[in-house]
């Protein structure tokens, strides 16, 4: 009885801040729009049909592509990092984890602005390269998809590293020794034992990076300079600029379905023993 009672605040919280908004958005996405942008409560699929226009499908495609690229980059960079952390001694390990977590305490916007300062034409990187004489003209480092991907990788890397680290650090070292004992070289130990056993962490990491990456609008706004429009920007525009809440809601729904599908697919690869964050 007591336990049940304790879950009430949580249930209330998720009701007010997640479930009700989702219901509202779902309703809006099926509503008609008056010429002045007012919501008319009549059922229609127009908002979804509108999304099928090539410019919007392009945005969808670009969002998925950039998110996929960033997620892959996070995996490629994050996995070795997680391995290194899990192998160091306890003392150094805490320092390394702190190095990952402390940046998360600073404001997300601030961190992204900091990158703008670095990547600008007069930014530190360009200045340095010119100083070395490697380039004469500043490189266009900002306001392109590359900068957006970089911003995503930088911001979301900890979400990849931490779940993988958590699985790796819990892994029974005698399994590794057993594989060596049976003749496996370190490469084979990794391919046949360590990597498959770390799948739950990898899957968690993929989801945790892909979700914010596919829905971000701040990073693409600041580092992409409005050149790289993503789903997040589109939604933001529809709600705040175009005042087309119905279409914005429809795009939100589509994105939510996209994320649910991603979770669905990846959870198939998740071990029943778990060990990840889900």
């Amino acid at each position: 009885m007591n336990k049940k009672w304790l879950s009430i605040p949580y249930a209330l919280w998720s009701l007010i801040f997640s479930i009700i908004p989702i219901i509202i958005i779902t309703i809006y996405s099926f509503c008609k729009r008056s010429p002045y942008g007012k919501i008319i409560y009549e059922f229609t699929l127009d908002n979804y049909k509108q999304f099928l226009e090539p410019i919007y499908l392009n945005v969808l495609w670009r969002s998925i592509l950039l998110a996929a690229i960033s997620t892959t980059a996070c995996l490629v960079i994050g996995y070795p990092m997680a391995m290194i952390i899990s192998k160091t001694s306890i003392k150094k390990r805490n320092v390394l984890i702190m190095l990952f977590v402390v940046p998360l305490w600073t404001n997300f916007l601030l961190r992204t602005y900091a990158w703008m300062v670095l990547l600008r034409d007069q930014g530190a990187i360009n200045q340095f390269l010119i100083y070395l004489g490697i380039i004469k003209e500043p490189l266009q480092l900002l306001y392109n998809p590359g900068a957006v991907v970089m911003g995503m990788v930088y911001n979301f890397l900890p979400f990849m590293v931490l779940p993988i680290y958590s699985v790796l650090s819990k892994m029974d070292n005698s399994l590794v020794e057993a594989a060596q004992d049976l003749g496996a070289t370190s490469g084979e130990v990794f391919r046949k034992v360590i990597f498959p056993l770390s799948m739950p962490g990898v899957v968690s990491g993929l989801i945790m990076v892909f979700m914010p990456a596919v829905s971000t609008f701040v990073i693409s706004d600041l580092l992409g300079g409005g050149q790289t429009v993503l789903l997040g920007n589109l939604i933001q525009n529809q709600f705040l600029v175009a005042r087309n809440w119905q279409f914005g809601s429809a795009i939100s729904m589509i994105m939510m379905v996209l994320i649910l599908i991603a979770i669905r697919i990846s959870s198939k690869y998740q071990d029943e023993e778990g060990g990840g964050l889900w």
Binding site: D172, S174, A178, A179, V193, L197
Partner: peptide, 8 residues
């Protein structure tokens, strides 16, 4: 000591 069989 604790078998270390591969669970996957």
């Amino acid at each position: 000591q604790r078998y270390a069989l591969f669970p996957h």
